[in-house]
Each structure stands twice: as C-alpha cells, then as structure tokens.
Design a protein around this nucleic acid. Structure first.
Length: 351
DNA sequence: CGAATTTGACCTGA
DNA sequence: TCAGGTCAAATTCG
C-alpha cells in the first residue's frame, strides 16, 4: 500500500481537536466507501457496455483516491501523535486491556513470526541450542503490540482490498483460483487471519528462499490419536503482509476438528470453496449462516479474527466515549466493504 | 501438569 | 547439494 503516505505534521493541537479531526477523516472515508459501494451495486444491476481493463471507471478511481486520501490523513493524524495510547485511551481507561505501545517504532510485520530470523541475527551472542526459548504470542500480546495506526491501517487495507476485488470482478469477470496444486487434496486460501478455528498444532517454521516471510507448518492436533493427516502451511504475502497465504493439504479425517466454540472461517465465508470444510458436518449444525444473523455484527467478525473482534468489542464497551466512537466507526466501515464479498475468489490476483 | 510453541537438527527429493 | 518439510527437545502457557 504505497499509496498511503504521510500528509504532514499536525502540529501541537489538543486531544479533543485531534480526535475530532480524526473522526471527521474516518467518517469522510466511510462516506466515500459507501458511495463506491452504491456505485458498484448500480453497476451490478446495469453492467457497463464496455470493459475497463485498467480496473474500474473514472468515478470509481476518483472515489478510491478520496478514500485513500481520507485514510492517509487519518493515519497522519495518528502518526503525528507521540502517543497513540494516550490519544485514545487516556480517558476513563483504568480498566482497559488494550495497552498500545507509546513508542512503537517497529512497524515491521515480520516481527510477528520473524523469531527465527532474529535468532539468526543475534546468533553470535546466544547459545547454540535455544529451542523452546521464546515468548509466546497470545491474542492479548498481539493486540498489545499493535499500535492504533497499525490497527487502522490493517482495517483500512483489508476493506480496500475488498473494494478493489469487487471492481476487478465487475469489470473483468476476474475469478480464478490462486493456484492448482498437484493433487486434488491441496487447496489455497488468502486470509487476513491464520485463524480458521480448526484444531491445528504448529510443528515447524522455515525461512523460504527469496521470501521475506517464514512459512509456518501446522498439523491436525488429532494426528496421533486419530491419524488425521490434514496439514496446513501459512505464509505472509510478501506484497501485502496483512494477508496470509494459507495452503491446506489433505482433508481432516478426524472426528473433532473444531478448536473451540467460535465462528469458523468456512462458515463465515460459505461461498469460499477454497476453504474446504472438514468432512464432518458438526459446524453447520452449531453455527447459523451469515444471512441468518439479525445484526450486522458478524460481518466484521467474519473478516477479522473472531477473538480480536470480541476483545475490541469489550474495549468499546468499557471505554466510552473515546474509544466507542472509533469502534463504532470501524464496524460501520468494515460492513461497507464486506458486503461486497458475494463471490468466491482469490485476493492475491488483485494485489 | 498437559498442551502448545519454538527452533535446531534431521530427512528427503529434485 | 540444498531448499523445503518434519521431528522432537526445550520451554512456556493456562
């Protein structure tokens, strides 16, 4: 997302003014995104006679530019704040679980799984066998490490991808599979989260040649007691590190593939046939489909990590009014983009 | 204390 | 030979 650029310093302005400015920019972006959505919906009903091979129409391009600018300015406001944490959480924040690094200069997403690389980097000063020496990244750790600008950026990039996807699908009829593996039992998926709510156990991680990000290897937790041979490989997409390339190899043959009573990636994306469901049908019985849910709440939850979203919802509740506004906005904005996903397709072609 | 993760060592196929 | 995949000891987490 090289389009996101800093738009200059905001100078020394007060919290409330910054917050107001921020909200205005976000709302502006939301408005443009909604316009774009309506535009695309109209195009669906009245398809254009000509095909634009460069992407969408000029109206779409203009809206995209506006959205980009809105968010670039938003991020600029956030980045200009020396402490994002205090900016959002300084009021009524005693009980908050969300602690955002006040001086986070590390925007490198590699840090998340770059432990093997960093261990190499500092190998001269550590003992040879450091197996098991690590800091486990729980969900709360993950949120703690995410600065607010990073979160907004992720949210924005994710939504924008869906808008771009929609434009490409509408204008080019673009719908191909990411890759065909040698066997029928191998399929790929691109997702902003590695979470699919199936019971996986990580058994390895490798640095891949000419690849910026390491590849992680997971097997079914039931491998040993039920002989389930399902595995998956997860790797960040180099050109868009907010997304993961997930390759599933082999179907689950075990009886219990569900990790916990949460939403699953498969059910949340019922049309996404790259994410092949497990052979049993337990999930379908437990969880209603998206169109059955009365509120739009699931729409963001299906696209963000379910756990992350549930925690963010808690934050929204426990920290009114400061964070609540932001939370409400992200929810609305996300729904704008997510309604577009009425076809199955691979994002990687769009990036 | 059992489950999960990390990570160097080991294995394998091209 | 080497890149990619797997194993398993060491360690952490809940």
């Amino acid at each position: 997302m090289s389009s996101i650029v800093s738009c200059g310093s905001e100078g020394n302005i007060g919290f409330s003014e910054k917050r107001e400015r921020l909200m205005n920019k976000l709302v502006e972006g939301h408005k443009h995104a909604t316009e774009l959505k309506l535009l695309l919906q109209n195009q669906n009903q009245n398809p254009p006679a000509t095909i634009h091979h460069g992407g969408g129409s000029s109206a779409e391009a203009l809206l995209i530019t506006k959205i980009l600018r809105s968010f670039a300015e938003t991020l600029s406001v956030l980045d200009s704040s020396s402490s994002s944490a205090s900016f959002f959480l300084n009021e009524n924040n005693s009980g908050s679980q969300l602690v955002i690094a006040a001086d986070s200069t590390n925007n490198d997403l590699r840090s998340e799984e770059g432990s093997s690389e960093s261990s190499k980097r500092f190998s001269s000063s550590v003992p040879k066998d450091r197996r098991g020496t690590y800091k486990r990244r729980s969900l709360s750790n993950l949120i703690s490490d995410l600065t607010l600008p990073e979160y907004v950026r992720t949210l924005y990039v994710y939504n924008f991808i869906y808008i771009i996807k929609k434009i490409k699908i509408d204008s080019l009829g673009f719908r191909t599979e990411l890759m065909r593996r040698k066997t029928e039992e191998t399929w790929s998926n691109v997702s902003p989260t590695t979470e699919d709510n199936l019971a996986w156990r990580k058994y390895g991680q490798k640095d891949i040649l000419n690849s910026k990000f390491p590849r992680s290897y997971y097997r079914c937790t039931r491998k040993h007691d039920q002989g389930c041979k399902a595995t998956k490989q997860v790797q960040r997409i180099q050109d868009n590190p907010v997304l993961y390339q997930i390759t599933y190899i082999g179907r689950h043959t075990c009886k219990e593939t569900l990790k916990a009573p949460q939403m699953t990636a498969y059910l949340l994306n019922p049309q996404d046939h790259h994410q092949t469901p497990p052979t049993n049908a337990i999930i379908k019985q437990e969880y209603p489909k998206q169109e059955d849910t009365p509120s739009g709440e699931i729409i963001i939850a299906e696209k963000l990590d379910a756990n992350l979203w549930s925690e963010l919802k808690d934050i929204e509740i426990t920290n009114p009014p400061t964070y609540a506004n932001f939370g409400a906005f992200s929810y609305n904005f996300c729904t704008t983009g997510f309604h577009f996903d009425d076809h199955h397709h691979d994002e990687s072609h769009m990036l």
